[in-house]
Write a protein that binds this DNA or RNA. Sequence first.
DNA 1: GGGCCGATATTCT
DNA 2: GAATATCGGCCCG
Length: 188
Amino acid sequence: MPIPRKFYERDTVIVAKELIGKKIIRVDNKTTFSGIITETEAYRASDDPASHAFNKITKRNHGMFDVVGKSYVYFTYGMYNCLNVVARSKKFEAGAVLIRGVHPIDGVKKMEENRKTDKFSNLTNGPGKLTQAFNITVKDYGIDMTKKSKLYITTGISPRKINSKSRIGITKAIDKKWNFSINPKDYF
DNA sequence: GGGCCGATATTCT
DNA sequence: GAATATCGGCCCG
């Protein structure tokens, strides 16, 4: 069952943590991809200098201000797409959770094709990689992930232990431990 | 295993 | 012009 919109209507940091272990499902043409979410990061708004939504609303980041539970995809470093889910409590005007890593379940063969590698551990262990493997681009901006569609999230497993670290690849607000992850041995 | 580098869209200064 | 929510290829050991 897809996760209801209410789940995303809470503090972005809490949603980021609780998305760990959930299952993400992607239907692309005839192929179904799925995977367990293993790493996320929370990005908030005016209290978070590292967030795209820290300044003004722009053409790229307007999705972070949209209805919670929708997808927010952006193009970065001139080559890579990154996938986020819009999530925030009523207190904030914007917010999203960056999906940084997943553990592949279904469609592995097609992922290897998309990624041009047969190394299982290198398929979806990074934000730019998983969008390549799942064939997610800016065309998938604004999809409602609370309903069965081309892209949605369902219940998954219950992780034993969730790590909390500083976010990766940023220089601002590194004191905020808003990166969440699990190790393979803690999947069950 | 780790460190540097180039690719290059969008935003900000 | 510079920075960025990245990655793969290269080098080195």
